[in-house]
Design a protein around this nucleic acid. Structure first.
Lengths: 186, 186
DNA sequence: GTCTATAATACGATAGAC
DNA sequence: GTCTATCGTATTATAGAC
């Protein structure tokens, strides 16, 4: 199978990939279907053959992440609400972010919350995090504990993509982020 | 001076106020000048009399906040790089957020970073925070310390507007946020 | 200082040929 | 599966009357 043949068959996958890149870089609203199409050397109409709407591209990207996140929630539920579980969840969540699309998707989510606000994908993501919080924060958790937990996840997010935090390598940045997250969820 | 007379003279101020509300609620891009005008019972063209461009409204809002932030940076610079200074800076920063426009502006900034990315106001804000970091983080600061410092500010931001963190009152929420921030910058 | 009217442009989405 | 062409709608911004 030649390179050209391969390219021909997975236009849909390429659209997803390019869209994710652009969404992460410049946000959902600012990324037009024309721009996505141009990067692939096709037309807007061709994109519409593979996805019924622009939002469907987004949904398709989020669903992949949701699958991993749901697994994590289920895993957490089956465990005691201890400090050790919290630490394990954070470690596993960071592994999830290290996946192929994780970092870009989460950057897009972290920096473009406003754009996601009215979209189903946005509410679904929020729901998942709320579920995680319910499982992990003590029943009578104080506001402070909720803050700490929420910030722990933000720490991991920043560790996954934030370039303007000085670190010698991406690995060191992720390690530092995990340390802070673990301390917050302590 | 009647209420009607007062209203007549400060249309510019009203535009700023309504724009800030809408920017915070739904983001910069999604807020149109038509929407701003409609809320005030005037037309789009009338808005253009008071502001040359949409971006100028944004700039005008940010400049107010920058003034307070610059004061804080100057104050911090004149102090020793100690844990006590860091704590004082966080406390003063929270006071800044408690100002009339602070919380809305910061919500808009925190949730709509993607929209601000290519705007001068966005880079200026980033610059200010970088300056604050330079003053407060030790010269040989580790990546972990940078994370902690950055998260301390995010904690205060969430404390200023985030409604989905359970707390009995806004005051309690802010107090909890400050506690976490102080712990992070310890 | 506010209006009506409109220019110029971009967007998401569709129709129909090939 | 991809194309050209287009529809309908929104946007920022401007011109000129009042």
């Amino acid at each position: 199978m030649s390179v050209a043949d391969e390219r021909r068959t997975d236009t849909r996958a390429q659209i997803r990939q390019v869209a994710l890149e652009l969404f992460a870089e410049q946000g959902y609203d600012k990324t037009s279907l024309r721009e996505i199409a141009e990067r692939l050397g096709i037309t807007k109409a061709a994109v519409y053959y593979h996805f019924k709407t622009k939002e469907e591209i987004l949904t398709s990207l989020f669903n992949e992440f949701f699958a991993g996140l749901d697994e994590l929630v289920a895993w957490a539920r089956a465990r005691p609400r201890t400090a050790e579980t919290r630490a394990d969840v954070l470690r596993r969540y960071q592994d999830l972010l290290a996946g192929p699309t994780g970092a870009q998707l989460i950057r897009f989510m972290q920096e473009g919350q406003a754009a996601l606000k009215d979209l189903p994908a946005g509410s679904e993501m929020k729901e998942r995090f709320a579920r995680l919080a319910t499982v992990l924060v003590p029943e009578d958790g104080t506001a402070e504990q909720h803050f700490r937990f929420r910030l722990a996840f933000i720490a991991l997010h920043l560790g996954a993509f934030s370039t303007d935090i000085p670190a010698d390598s991406p690995e060191e940045r992720r390690a530092a982020a995990l340390n802070v997250a673990l301390d917050l969820a302590r």
